[in-house]
C-alpha cells in the first residue's frame, strides 16, 4: 500500500522503495526502519498516512 507524507505530500510507493534512503524496491511501509524519514521534507514515519 502507498503512503503519503502529511507534511509535504510526497508518496511512498513500496514498488519503488526509496533509493536515497537506502530502501530497496518491494519494501512495505510497515517494514521501513523506525528512523527512516521522508526524503523530501524530513518528516518522520508517524507523519505518513495511507494514500
Amino acid at each position: 500500500m502507498k503512503y503519503v507524507c502529511e507534511l509535504c505530500g510526497w508518496e511512498y510507493d513500496p514498488a519503488e522503495g526509496d533509493s536515497e534512503g537506502g530502501i530497496a524496491p518491494g519494501t512495505a511501509f510497515a517494514d521501513l526502519p523506525d528512523d527512516w524519514t521522508c526524503p523530501v521534507c524530513g518528516a518522520e514515519k508517524d507523519q505518513f498516512s495511507p494514500a
Binding site: L7, C8, G9, W10, V40, C41
Partner: peptide
C-alpha cells in the same frame, strides 16, 4: 495550484 514544498508545505 498547490505546490507543496515549493518551498514550504
Amino acid at each position: 495550484i498547490e505546490t507543496r514544498m515549493l518551498h514550504w508545505p
